[in-house]
Design a protein around this nucleic acid. Structure first.
Lengths: 169, 169
DNA sequence: TATTGTTATACTCTATAACTATA
DNA sequence: TATAGTTATAGAGTATAACAATA
């Protein structure tokens, strides 16, 4: 976004700047992950699994706003890489339990390193205090949104999927 | 993005939060524009035309990172709505000059109003001083990026197009 | 020969609805 | 009957390469 009268400048709007910078952040993150052979969405699932093991494929998909049919390909892809596993669900023979493999945990660690690299590069123009300030303000905004939305917050739908809007970015 | 260990929380990372909030901002902007019968990309072109009249279709596309073939449909759509016009280029009979119509200028005004509404809603959780602070920090980041990238800055590729990364939103 | 707008084709991604096996 | 994962089909969106008119 950027409804400026000057095409070369972002307008003095938080929403526009967030949109622009967030898009760039996703892009750089995607590039960094591509170097590891990972896609943004794959990283999103790894990240979720690193904190929430044991969920069914469907339950994980619900948390990521990914429909069941698309979860198949996503899980297939990571399983083919040996980063995750479909394990038999202990209570439901229809379902699988998705879990990180050792290689998957290692790959996730590398991806997080890459993410921190992107973070550092993006914040490089800011003084340390400015960066802390910005972080606090963004967290406040995000917290308010999460409280409002009520559910399924935290995971950037962009790296995963969504149910309503922007796909262009 | 959001490499947190807690799937319900964004991690303390500027990049992740920017990605998440920027995605939301685009989404809300898209919704607001949809109420006016406009898409994000269409708004992007209107916005550009409001400040840079007279460019050829190709030149405009270059500024928005939209390839010539896709500019055709974009211009077609807005021309069908009567918001822009293909006018004969004064110096090159192959090219057109794209210009806002009166209706287009009015629609752009309405879209800007909608954009400001989104801005206000998004910043509602912040105190006025916080908002000003956030705006300043985001502008500093954006300015540094523009200076680095060198060219074609300011316009959120997400509402338009891109040449490398995230399309998942 | 290069460039403008345009079109044609193929390819990717997604959505919707079915199917199977369990519950 | 409803739900897990899966598959099939169709649709939207995009990229690539061509094309006619003009430079």
């Amino acid at each position: 976004m950027s409804p400026s009268l000057d095409p070369g400048q972002s307008p003095p709007s938080v929403a526009f700047l967030l949109s622009r910078l967030g898009y760039d952040a996703s892009g750089e993150m995607g590039k960094a992950l591509a170097g590891l052979g990972l896609e943004l969405r794959q990283f999103g699932l790894l990240r979720l699994l690193a904190s929430a093991q044991g969920g069914s494929q469907r339950a994980l998909g619900a948390m990521l706003n990914i429909t069941p049919n698309r979860m198949v390909a996503l899980v297939d892809g990571l399983e083919a890489k040996g980063l995750i596993e479909r394990r038999p669900h202990p209570e439901d023979r229809r379902a699988y339990t998705i879990g990180l493999t050792e290689a998957g945990a290692a790959a996730f660690g590398q991806a997080m390193q890459a993410a921190f690299g992107v973070e550092a590069a993006m914040c490089e123009p800011l003084e340390p205090e400015e960066r802390a300030q910005l972080l606090g303000l963004l967290q406040k905004l995000a917290a308010a949104r999460n409280a409002r939305a009520g559910a399924v917050p935290g995971v950037h739908p962009g790296m995963l999927e969504r149910d309503d809007q922007p796909s262009e970015h």
